[in-house]
Amino acid sequence: MGKTSSRDRLSNEINAGSMADIAFLLLIFFLVTTTIDVDKGVLVKLPPWSTEPPETMTLNERNVFSVMVNAENQLLVRGELEKIEDLREKAKEFIWNPNKRPDMAEKPTKAIISLKNDRGTEYKTYVEVYNELKAAYNELREEEAQRKYAKPYEYLARDQQKEIRARIPLVLSEAEPTNFGEEN
């Protein structure tokens, strides 16, 4: 009988060769099930809460880039209906104002972006709009970095980045949303 023949052997060790296979199996299981979940997102800084009514500032209208998103997810940029795809270019032109137009920002430091939405606006649209506005600033900073230092923004030293950020500051004010179209 084949079974008993093993008893006749001298050394009766457990074959450890298959241990590796078992461990490999477990390893692969963990490798497959592990999702190294990197959480990414659009970073924003909320304004601090205060109960006092905000002081009214008189702003030169040319410095304000107003973006409104309604409950139908339509965009009104400075009084005109726009598409999200065009928002980035519009914002860049407004902030940088390369042609020194009298109806656009005097200089980037004076530009203010005002964002307003309805309570019924889809979150997806809101994030897209926010993303485009942020992208406009990031692109302008990138261009400035290339112009001044001929290097991409992310490779600049800390204080150089800071300087560019100060030159093109992201000022985005969000108004309280209006109560339209909230789902119940």
Binding site: D39, K40, G41, V42, L43, V44, K45, L46, P47, P48, W49, V127, Y130, N131
Partner: peptide, 14 residues
């Protein structure tokens, strides 16, 4: 979040 003074917010996105 603003009332709780938690001002750093990240809109998670892909």
């Amino acid at each position: 979040l603003r009332k709780a003074n938690q001002l750093k917010v990240n809109y998670s996105a892909k």
